[in-house]
């Protein structure tokens, strides 16, 4: 794997200090999911930290959990760069084909849950609670947003909650 010095700067800029490799990438260069996916790969070997040293940059810090083998820390830069590009590429392909995949997979799945029995139906109480939405799942974006601003009332809680 390429050492830090050979990784193109438009992919990432890496520095090594102690047991830590710090890699700075331009925030707009990769989807966030690609950044997360690439960083996750190192969890078994390194402590992983993502932060934002400046508004347009993300820093991935990989700190070896144990004393790294000779040259391993430097090679992490190449490995991270490869994972970043790989994840970003796949995200691009997935984005281009999302509707095709969704269409194919939407012919989907029924669960393991059984339908209600007659006993259940006779016990069911058709009251106002049938339209209650205690978790706010049926709220529009506008309503939810207004709630956040304190303008709309919170959904009523059922007795016992």
């Amino acid at each position: 794997m390429s050492p830090a010095a050979e990784v193109p700067p438009d992919v990432l800029r890496a520095t090594v200090s102690g047991r830590t490799l710090s890699a700075i990438v331009a925030e707009g260069a990769y989807p966030l999911a690609a950044l997360y996916g690439a960083a996750y790969v190192f969890l078994d070997r390194c402590w992983v930290l993502l932060d934002r040293p400046s508004p347009a940059e993300v820093r991935v810090s990989l700190t070896y959990k144990t004393e790294p083998p000779e040259g391993a820390l430097d090679a992490l830069a190449g490995e991270l760069a490869e994972e970043l590009v790989s994840c970003a590429w796949r995200a691009g392909v997935a984005g281009e084909t999302r509707s095709m995949i969704e269409q194919a997979t939407s012919r989907a799945h029924s669960g393991a849950d059984a339908g209600p029995s007659l006993d259940d139906l006779t016990r069911y109480e058709f009251g106002d609670d049938a339209t209650a939405d205690p978790l706010g799942l049926a709220m529009s974006w506008e309503e939810a947003h207004a709630t956040a601003q304190g303008a709309a009332p919170a959904p009523e809680k059922k007795e016992g909650e």
Binding site: S2, V7, P8, V11, G78, E82, V85, W89, G92, G95
Partner: peptide
């Protein structure tokens, strides 16, 4: 290496 191909990867 994909890094070397990064500007030519087809989505």
């Amino acid at each position: 290496q994909l890094v070397q191909l990064r500007k030519h990867l087809s989505p």
